[in-house]
Structure formats: C-alpha cells, structure tokens
C-alpha cells in the first residue's frame, strides 16, 4: 500500500507482459540481423579496397557519434517523409506473407522503423567488436600457419577467425545487452514495447511505482539472463574447443 497502491489488475499485468514479449522478440531479431550486418561491415573494412573501407568507416562514424533517439526520430518521422507515398502506403498496408507452414503478419511501420534503426545502430558497434577481435589475434600465429604452407584464406578461416570470435564474443554479448536496453527508446516512435506498455498502464491506473517497478525488474532480468547465457557459452567446452589456442 502507501505509494505503491493496491496491486494492479491482471489485465494491466498482461499488457506489461505483452510489452515485454515485444521487447524480447525485437531484441532477438535485432541481435541476429545486427550480427550479420556487423560481420559484413567488418568484412568491408578488412577488404582493403578504399571505396569499401571509406563506406564502412562513414557508416560506423555516423551511427556511433549520434544519439539513437535522434536516429529513431529521423527514420520514423524524417525518412518516411522522403519516401514516395506509394511505398509508404504499401508499407502501412497489412500484408500477410504466406509461407508453406507459417503465415507472417506484416508488422506495423513503427516496428519496421524500430527494427531498422536498432539494427543499424547495433551493427556499427558489433562490426567494431569483430574488428577488434581480429586485430587481437597475435600476428605470429598467422605467420607460422603461413609457414606451414596453408593458403591465406584457409589461415583466416582455421586460425584467425576462431580466435577472433572468442576474443569478440563477450563484447558482442555486451552489445546484445545494450540492444535490449535500447529497445526502450522505440517507445518514442510509438512501438508498443515494455517501456511504452508501462506508460500506458500508468496512464490508465496511475500505479506509477508498480508499472515502472515491474518494467525495471523485467529489463534487469532479461539483461541478467542474457549475460549469464553469454558467459555460459564462453565457458562451455564446445566454444573453448572451437577456439582453443594451438
């Protein structure tokens, strides 16, 4: 009681849990996509071709040196004003993608913009973590593998990459944790994730403490569980074997 008021009705708890589900799904989708993007951008940086390197550097610099909130505002409010109205109409019309087994509902534009903005953001950070991982591999190892007569591509795949992944793994997990927290900013563009849901519950019930308290606990739990899982993978036999130093 007191400042916390009476316990909130089940209906509002369900709103919060729905918001949490959106947060988790969005974080997972963004983490997967951003990992792919990060690897690709890291590849561009290591390609040695000047235009590609400049492209990758520009992207990373723009994303890392501007606030995510401003980026999300830009993608949702700014960029959609630039798109042809036909495309916007198409993006906003509900489509059902019928695959053989699953039929996916076309997400709302908030979700598309949020996913896009968060993926671009996390991708820039993950690219840098991978690059740091590759740079962190002792050059002597590459040289000794070359001395054994292995081709450079093979040396990269067999010697450099496994160790780079091991070095980069925990920092990349750190970016996944940041992604979970960063999804909270998408409430500013109307995406109904956990922070949005907590404000909505607050609007209807005025149970400010409960709404924000539950949301905070769910965020902390999601981050803690993901972090623990990341560390467990890092310690697991398979990961250690795959990345063992020769």
């Amino acid at each position: 009681m007191g400042v916390f008021g009476e316990p909130m009705a089940l209906r509002y708890l369900i709103w919060l849990l729905e918001g949490f589900a959106v947060t988790l799904l969005l974080s997972a989708a963004v983490s997967v996509a951003a990992t792919g993007l990060g690897i690709a951008v890291c590849g561009l940086k290591l390609s040695g071709r000047r235009p590609l390197v400049i492209l990758a550097d520009t992207y990373v610099s723009i994303i890392r040196n501007t606030p995510l909130l401003v980026q999300l505002f830009f993608w949702y409010f700014g960029a959609s004003a630039l798109m042809p109205s036909g495309l916007m109409t198409w993006l906003n019309t509900p489509h059902v993608l019928d695959a053989v087994l699953v039929s996916l509902h076309w997400p709302a534009f908030e979700t598309i913009a949020g996913f896009f903005g968060l993926t671009l953001y996390a991708g820039a950070y993950i690219a840098e973590e991978f690059r740091a991982g590759i740079n962190g591999v002792d050059p002597a190892q590459r040289e000794s593998a070359m001395a054994l007569g292995l081709r450079p591509a093979l040396v990269f795949w067999l010697v450099v990459l496994p160790q780079a992944v091991r070095i980069a793994w925990l920092p990349v997990v750190g970016q996944y944790l940041n992604t979970i927290k960063n999804t909270s900013l998408t409430m500013a563009i109307g995406l109904a994730e956990l922070s949005y849901a907590s404000r909505q519950v607050e609007t209807e019930t005025f149970l400010t403490f409960q709404a924000f308290g539950i949301a905070t606990i769910l965020y902390v739990a999601a981050v803690a569980v993901t972090e623990a899982a990341g560390h467990a993978v890092a310690r697991s036999g398979r990961f250690a074997w795959a990345t063992q130093r020769p």
């Binding site: 949702y76 409010f77 004003a81 109205s85 916007m88 906003n92 534009f109 908030e110 109307g190």
Partner: peptide, 8 residues
C-alpha cells in the same frame, strides 16, 4: 500529426 502526414 507527422505520423498522419507520412501515412503511418
């Protein structure tokens, strides 16, 4: 309103 204007 911006969302309305953009068709969202």
């Amino acid at each position: 309103f911006t969302a309305l204007r953009n068709g969202n």
